[in-house]
Design a binder for these strands. Structure first.
Lengths: 205, 205, 205, 205
DNA sequence: TATGAATGAGCCTTCATTCAT
DNA sequence: GATGAATGAAGGCTCATTCAT
């Protein structure tokens, strides 16, 4: 029964691959890209360092796998949150709120996505940047849509979207590095208000 | 003749120290802290690697020297720009404008200050963060002052200042990495407007 | 008056050369040959490292100069002490006593002659060994003379002289490294007695 | 097949570890601690320099491993020789004889134990000195025991034991460096006689 | 003569990657 | 597939020596 066997093996491999990614997240988040050693990651994953190379081409590609997974998760959560909202501006707010919530719940992810991802190594940074862009593009599209609908005044959508995303990044960075704000939760509403004001949304209050 | 230090030699040394810092900026900007090698830097500076250690204690201290110089330059430009303005809100705008201008004129500095500085190495990052903080504090103080004067509505000053600085960072990051916006100049006014709106300033138009 | 001038200069140089040797003794004694750095020695001598090379070909030759001087001093003291004695066996005792006395009075010398000298570097060790030999030869000659005169029984003069010198060395080594005996003075008589017994001298008591 | 360690691999590793130690003995004996380079040792062992660090933490610990092994071997031989003797004084003679024999058979060991060991590096020397002391203590205990039994006259046991060990050291040193005596074998009986006389043993002849 | 900045070979050590098992 | 011992290039840094001044 070669078919079943292959399935089992495949399952085992998936398990191992996941273990490696989980370990990699921990180590990369804690030590940063350069200081993280392959041996450490393998060790944490309960796997020999050679084994790691059966699942990933090299350290870089492991890092990218980690980042991809994180971005997928992050964007998934954001997209999900947006689905519950009809109004474009509410979509924007929901995005911000979802991002802050997921980072608050998963500090490691924040560390990786916000701090380590963008600063790994010349070539990796470029690839990560591509993923980072997705969020900016989402925001940009919302802004353009809202402008079209007359919900927002005309503006430089690129700059606005970058500013929007940047404000989020900085708050998280400060939270991670300085512990200020102490809780991401307290940042949610002020940050949403800040950006909606910035975009020119007429807030009800 | 027991060695004439004062004149030529001292000058030559200053020149050499500067050459090393210039080279370090190039290499650190291009490769990042970890991937940059001391040998490379020395080589680029036209100096033997041992020579570098006559001017700097070690790689870390060279990096800090580079960063310090850059922050001094950056904050100097910002403070200068602020001096010409009386009004608190104008001070804020002037700060943003000055920062964008200096980065536009000095892409390498942007690369180092915005991208490499924050992600070098655990202990260096902390020191750099201290310098980064200065800008955020400046903004925070302005906001609080403006709120006190009734120029701005009450708000969460920490979050507002982080968002302010973050929006700037992100625009520069995107410019460096994606080439969008193509020119920082075009970002200046939209970004100022974005943040003034965000802060709740009543814009005249 | 070129003659006088040359004399002055020569004097100055002798002063400087001596300063370097004095400094070298300190540093070599403290750090050992390899760990002692030329720069440190020059610095301690109040001289630039380049200057050192006007007086000595290189680190090795400086070390040899130090050792030569020490051996000269040591052997001088020993020969002087021997002169006051007529009897061959008394010459031997006097040698031992003189050696212990000079080391007790000059711990640095002991450190260099006994510990550092023999273990500097492959080629230096050989040269130092040649100087070490002088003491052994002196002892050997005494033994042979005493045997000829019937003061000592026939024996393997080489072995006896080596043992004699070795016993001295070991006591000093232990004194330097372990602080046992606390005082070299207390070692003098036991050590003399040990070796006279060893040589077969009929001690009066 | 998750890697078969137990048999061949483990054996190979032991072989390799031994090869490294053997190479280290050669190089340390030839060049001394400081001048010996890790690369050279690895090379002589037929191993990459990185491999060496799989077996030893660093150069220091490799050196200590070498010295420990040698001291173990040396003291083992001495203790074995002593076991065959009942009389305290015979134990002493047997110790000396055993030491000379093992050095005669293993010149490299002599080089390391007598010449290099004591002069490696500040912190290592101390550790080595601890091992060196064992021999001196053995001798010291014998002397004290013999004195108690009335086999030897009262004496300064510390000085006597140091002299005893020193005489041995010096003979070996001279043999190694000067080639005198040509053969250690010829030194055995004279040296034993020298020291027994020294201690005040009533020799039968 | 005296200086000390400059050199660069060489040091010990790390670590991503490979490959025999 | 899994292992982990082995590799060796590359890293930061030191220091005896040189040489322009």
């Amino acid at each position: 029964m070669p078919y079943q066997r292959s399935e089992k093996v495949e399952q085992k491999m998936e398990v191992k691959e996941k273990a490696i990614i989980i370990a990699a997240k921990e180590i990369f988040a804690r030590d940063g890209y350069s200081a993280a050693s392959v041996k450490n990651i393998a060790c944490r994953a309960g796997v020999a360092s050679g084994t790691l190379y059966l699942y990933f081409d090299n350290k870089d590609s492991l890092f990218m796998a980690v980042m991809s997974e994180l971005y997928e998760e992050l964007l998934g959560a954001i997209k999900l949150a947006r689905k519950s909202e009809k109004d474009t501006l509410h979509k924007l707010s929901a995005s911000l709120r979802a991002a802050l919530n997921i980072f608050a719940a998963n500090r490691e992810m924040a560390e990786l996505v916000v701090l380590q991802g963008p600063n790994s190594n010349a070539s990796l940074s470029k690839q990560v940047a591509t993923m980072e862009d997705l969020l900016a593009k989402l925001v940009s599209q919302d802004i353009e849509a809202a402008v079209d609908k007359g919900l927002l005044p005309k503006q430089h959508a690129l700059i606005s979207s970058l500013a929007f995303v940047g404000s989020l990044n900085q708050v998280i960075t400060s939270w991670l590095r300085e512990g200020k704000p102490e809780n991401l939760a307290e940042a949610v509403e002020p940050l949403i208000k800040y950006n909606l004001n910035a975009l020119g949304a007429k807030t009800s209050d």
